[in-house]
Design a protein around this nucleic acid. Structure first.
Lengths: 231, 231
DNA sequence: GTCGCTGAGTTAATGACCGTAACTATGTAT
DNA sequence: ATACATAGTTACGGTCATTAACTCAGCGAC
């Protein structure tokens, strides 16, 4: 009766890995990655702590894998937000709001993704995290770059060169001004969200949502006529 | 021979507190606050771990006090940077560069100050940290607001009200546009620094310093003629 | 000066954590 | 049926924060 396809072991293994990651992710969502406890994960799924080491080399390694998943999840959310709106300006707003909403709804996950780089040696980590991060950032860039000619300051030559190298190949059609605009846009959104999540604005009594809206408005104002017309 | 002024005990106590904070701060600068070990502090100064509890209620409480010191130190650095330059635009540049330079030289200290709010119950913490944080942010605001009339978008009424409440009393002379400009300026600088410290820009190969300079330039361009003239 | 208090320090113990080692049992291939 | 890899266990060593019980020095009051 038992399934004797040669990959039965592996099927169960994948399932176990998924369960570990799911319960670990649940703990991260509750208390944050730095308070994630392997003992807690094992206890929560009726498994000894030591057994987890059959599936992950260390606590940091597990956290790194969770970081990858978080980036991919965020990318999906942003893509969905982009798909819900037709006009370019509306898409920018939609993605920007989805970005902040998701961060507020999943603060610990956001910190896992964009907080300080985890783990002692991040060499093998970055190889997997960086592409995932690139994907979520790509959505932000896409909605900004899809039709705008930003009226921005000239890009200094060295920075222009680096941007061209970074976007090498697939985005050579876009001017460096647009790409830089997308980058700093992302950075500005992140700046406000980071302060809000760190509760560094609560003492001021100012609603971060209003500051955030202002930043989005400023970015749209800095973009070309296609955005201005449909804003 | 021993000094028998009635506060001898207290003198020694202050000295011990200072030594504990100094060694703890040194550890934080090395490994970050989340890896700060009370055992390590005690060991490093030839003291049992338990004795530290005569001076600090808990590890989190000690970290909170360090956070206060960090904010004050940063404020001093920024004030010194502001004092070194005469022109308004030069002051803005000087403070902005000092901000990033200090963050890069003391990444763990910066994270302690502007990272996620520490400690479980931060009620007694914020009472001491918030004013210190206000001071360092005040320097940033001062150099921006000292003479600029930013050509910015109109401030929505609710945000204007909150800003007025926040700056209540001492800054009523400044228009809300200027204050918001200072706030978002700080947020933008923090956004880039946070990403740089988190190593989230290394994968792109782009020099964060160039992006940072661009943001400073953009802010100066958005300020009034007094800055433009002397830029 | 002695009594009693406070405060600084100690050691010991509790309970949590990560990670490793030794071992058992189960599944799989030959 | 035998040999091997895999998944799991318990037991252990080490670190950590925190509390409790205890000792000793400093210091004011009598």
């Amino acid at each position: 009766m038992t399934d004797h396809r040669p990959n039965r072991r592996e099927r169960i293994r994948r399932q176990t890995v998924a369960e570990i990651k799911a319960t670990a992710m649940a703990q991260v969502r509750e208390v944050g990655s730095e308070l994630l406890s392997l003992n807690g994960v094992g206890r929560s799924m009726g498994m000894s702590t030591a057994a987890l080491y059959r599936y992950f080399g260390s606590r940091d390694e597990l956290i790194a894998e969770l970081a990858v998943d978080v980036h991919l999840e965020l990318a999906d959310v942003l893509e969905a937000a982009a798909g819900r709106v037709a006009s370019p300006a509306g898409r920018v707003r939609s993605v920007a709001n989805a970005y902040r909403d998701w961060a507020l709804a999943n603060p610990h996950a956001y910190r896992l993704a964009y907080g300080p780089a985890h783990g002692a040696d991040r060499a093998p980590v970055d190889d997997r995290v960086a592409p995932a991060a690139q994907r979520s950032m790509g959505v932000l860039l896409a909605v900004v770059t899809e039709g705008g000619q930003p009226s921005t300051e000239p890009v200094p030559p060295e920075l222009a060169r680096q941007i061209r190298v970074w976007s090498g190949g697939d985005r050579t059609d876009l001017p460096v001004e647009v790409l830089r605009f997308g980058l700093v846009w992302w950075s500005r959104l992140h700046g406000l969200i980071s302060l809000e999540l760190g509760a560094h604005l609560t003492a001021t009594g100012i609603d971060p949502a209003l500051l955030y809206q202002g930043e989005v408005d400023a970015m749209l104002a800095g973009l070309g006529h296609r955005y201005r017309a449909t804003a």
